[in-house]
Design a binder for these strands. Structure first.
Lengths: 213, 213
DNA sequence: TGTACATCAGTGAACGCGCGTTCACTGATGTAC
DNA sequence: TGTACATCAGTGAACGCGCGTTCACTGATGTAC
């Protein structure tokens, strides 16, 4: 319990009329709302309440509720890529190790942010036709495809080359399937392992997707 | 346009006071509602309207809205298994061909019923602790695990044997990832192929999950 | 440095709506005798 | 075969609620001169 007896998310000092960075605060509050209520129970008023702001305030930054969800998904894809990069930075430079690190990061992100992952991959509410979200999602795909190509040595675009398509589809599907099942709590015998053992298992499984040339 | 000028889902003859099989009608209407509105826009009143029945009627059969969603997911898992069996029946008896057919059926079901698939695998609203749904979901997993074991020749339970766990996790994740991505319209270069070519590609990809002994 | 003014960001009341659920009811069906 | 009665299945009105959005407003900030 907070010793002042105040709820921890209420500012002690009188908050200035202007917030400073309400957009970011609202995105953080939106993520918390997603975690708590799921996409199905997500509401603009709930987000505003979490942010400690009147329920009409978000409109100034995101337009309507779908605008906020689109922004949340966009930031989600950016973090998704960043998480994969983090794992790659700690891995050997060799293409295979880099691809494995990407896959582990893919799955780790989903397990760390299951509600956000669902918004990004399992909801129709964000506007994927909006340029920001469209580009962020495409960037994640392109990044994975590039790392697959580095391993196979096949630089042809998947849309033109059947082998390239199969390689990238297999890798993506394997990572995505593990991510989705583990985020949902399916596969408990894998998800319940301690993190290091789990990541080792994931690397072993992901290795089946593509073979080096 | 219907030549009688009547909406096709309105009965011509006065409907008797008792419906006969309202439970099934409501499940069908629920699936249509899912397809149209998604899980996020799903409402009991919408389902009742589709079924041509007062909005209080569903309570007699399913209790509340979550009861209906749980029943929908349960029937979904039963159909999911049945669809895989259909593909297996048309395949060679050899274990590898049977497993491939299961995977193709897994993906086909998801592409044919994307909204239902999402309810089954991507929503927290159905009550997975209810015996009916719990058993139906477990049966689907057990079925897949059995076919994986038939291919690998490893009969140890995945919870005890690491190799068995990796094999079943890899197969499930690969099928599930393809299903989820294709159902969502991601992977258009694969999803856009004509059905026969698509299934051939899926078989090729699924084959990477496990190796025969 | 001061002042007028435009713009921006957040407020709080109000709106209309669709929702899930409850409730007393009524029509239909099944069963006991 | 008839009748009384219990049970079942569906109705329609009513409830209270939380929602997204609109709106006139006000406090704060930035800028031109």
């Amino acid at each position: 319990m907070d010793p002042t007896g105040q709820p921890p998310d209420v500012a002690r000092a009188p908050r200035p009329y202007h917030h400073g960075d309400l957009a970011t605060t609202l995105l953080d509050a939106g993520e918390a709302e997603l975690v708590d209520k799921g996409i199905e129970g997500f509401s603009l008023r709930g987000v505003a309440k979490r942010a400690g702001v009147s329920h009409a305030a978000p409109a100034h930054h995101f337009g309507d509720v779908d605008g906020l969800l689109t922004a949340l998904a966009t930031r989600g894809f950016e973090r998704f890529l960043a998480r994969q990069e983090e794992f790659r930075r700690q891995a050997r430079r060799e293409p295979r190790a880099q691809l494995e690190a990407s896959g582990v990061g893919y799955v780790a992100f989903a397990m760390e942010n299951p509600a956000l992952f669902r918004l990004m991959f399992g909801s129709r509410r964000p506007d994927f036709a909006s340029p920001g979200l469209g580009l962020a999602a495409q960037a994640a795909f392109d990044d994975l495809a590039r790392h697959v190509a580095d391993v196979t040595g096949n630089a042809n675009p998947p849309s033109k080359d059947r082998a390239a398509l199969h390689d990238v589809a297999a890798t993506w599907a394997l990572a995505h399937g593990l991510a989705d099942l583990l985020a949902a709590g399916r596969l408990p015998s894998l998800g319940g392992l301690p993190p290091r053992a789990r990541n080792r298992a994931i690397v072993g499984i992901l290795g089946r997707a593509v073979r080096s040339p």
